[in-house]
Amino acid sequence: MIDAADAFDVWWGWPPPVLDPAGPYAHSVTVLAWALFALGVIVTAIVALAVFVAVAGPPRWKARLGGEKAILILGVGFPAVVLTGLLVWGLTLTASLTDPITGREPRIRVTAHMWWWDVEYLDAAGRVVRRDANELHLPVGRPVVLELGSADVIHSFWVPNLSGKEDMIPGRTNLLKVQADRPGRFGGICAEYCGGPHALMGYVTVAHLPADYDRWLAGGNVSSGPANPQHVPGAMPASARRTPAGQGTADPKAAPQDGEALFVAHGCAACHRVAGTQANGLAGPDLTHVGSRLTLGAGILPNNRGTLQGWITDAQALKPGNRMPAYGNIPAADIAAIALWLEAQE
């Protein structure tokens, strides 16, 4: 039995941080939620008091409670005023969540797959400047427009700290504005049942200071904060060094420690793309920047050498039903070399 608390504990804790807004689109909803809760408490108290008076109150109070005036005030006037006020508040708030897109916001296209997320950062002309997966980087303090779509079934995008849920529907692009007002890491999860390992379909949103974000988008490496660093002791073995594009050998016997050649030879490249190499598959997550990601398996495992080897060897044991087969047939030394090479793909 897989408990979502185990899967996401490292990033979120459980339950999801719905009452800890980190941006305006989540904050207004949280305020409304607390207001509704407080009103509910007040109304329940009034009703309980009225029941008490009706059953055990003095006769004079009972008569007043049953009078026409009390019914008009408490039964008609009070609900009409409160409910109308809430309706206006709720509708204007909902409208503000989808306030007009100016076209100047950074755009990120997020496409859901069973059971991972394809993430493309677009420039002003709509060209893809950086492609990544299972991780969403945002600049702090400005709204970002997400183009949400799906490659297969209906999924739902949800970062509790930043916004409400937004469906991701095949054949349709839903726009969602999000904004983070403080740097940090915010967990996300698929919020619409999408089959099999739906509960293990997550991601991490990383909000950077604007300068850091620009550096990150340009391909630079930016520390995403001190929490849970996955630092491996010792120097990286030479086999982990990235081979310049086009210099890798495709024959694994010629260079048994060449992770790139092994990655291609064992067929990983049929599903995964690593920019600048022969690996050009599109069925699985893009691994061009896998070494810099915080998680593996779509937000469910910390990313380090050990979890990477464990995932490649038997992803089905970790995320049953996902579309990556178990590769127990590949020699452990080859998997270790592939993992080392992937770790260097930042």
Partner: peptide, 9 residues
């Protein structure tokens, strides 16, 4: 530890 229970090792 209920999850994960990998089988690589």
């Amino acid at each position: 530890i209920a999850w994960p229970q990998g089988r690589a090792g």
